[in-house]
Amino acid sequence: MVQGSPFTVQKLFMPGTGPRWLPYGVLILIVAAAPLVFSGRMSYYLSILSLAGIYAVVVIGLNMLMGYAGQISLGHAAFFAIGAYTSGILSTRYGLSPILCALPAVAAAGSVAVLIGIPTLKLKEHYLAMATLGFGIIMYTILRADPGSMTGGIQGMPNIPPLQILGHAADSDRAQYTIVWSTVILVFLFSTNILESRFGRALMAIHKSEVCAAVLGINVFGHKLQVFVLSALYAGFAGFLYAHCSPLKYLNPDDVAHVILSIKFVTMVVIGGMGNRWGALCGAVGLTVLPEVLRLMSSLLHGISSTDIEMACYGLILIMVMILSTRTRKRLLPIPAENTLTQHPIRQ
């Protein structure tokens, strides 16, 4: 794939062309060092990093869908919410041990994704964006309206039990951080392997041109559906982590299912440069830490709420990154070149 082309930074992250394990080693070192830095009174920051890790799982999945396959989903918070609520309901109302909830949570998100994906992925571009957005809003409405008196509606769902591992409850910030980030690393390696396989290359071909991909014998719809479901599985798993591994122990439709959360996930993918795995990871951490930075600076903001500034930042980031990326024809970080085959001739 890269043989014979000139050296790029990109090659460092590709198989067989350089010190492949170096970046992973650095990642593991950073992850392991964080609890040492943020110890004692500063362990609050670990809980923020845990949240970043949970979002990172969603973003890694969404990046496969958006960056690699070139599709768009504005409703990924819905799958996140399905995972979180399935796990929350099973563990509080049916007393299932939290760790056993992971499978049903992921399965629920996956099966909804199959049901939604089959009709939705036949649509393209605008229609796909709106259909996924519409699905996200329906999910949010259902969770708020609480038809079966299961989700607690607007009041939310309190007292979700923490994970039990070997008889110990993972209740501290540090334990949650360890669980979350070790799964993030596993998920990251897993998706790296998927993307560097035949499947990943097929996705990139679909992104370049669906017609070309189909001519090459790639089952376009099948691959789109698979990557959509896969990204939903990631989101469902992240939802499960959110339910049991965040210090809140509380689920609320506004926190887990809101449209703004879906847009936040898209922003995280976009800021990292769509199609860049490392970028997605950095985007997730960066944008989760951003509100904390804004909160620290709140004295400078003269009464403007930090959530509004956060929202404005997302908006400006989306606009700027997208404009820059089209103007320079590359993303902020070195990654495969932009889709040029399917563009309108006049707008080129």
């Binding site: 768009i72 400006l316 989306l318 606009i319 997208m322 932009e338 889709n339 707008r347």
Partner: peptide, 24 residues
């Protein structure tokens, strides 16, 4: 400024505009 961008890019830009206006 995003002349020649793909449809997905333009969708993301108008979403950015939307939430910026909302925040302002």
């Amino acid at each position: 400024p995003a002349h020649g961008a793909s449809v997905v890019t333009l969708i993301i830009i108008t979403i950015g505009v939307s939430i910026t206006l909302k925040a302002l």
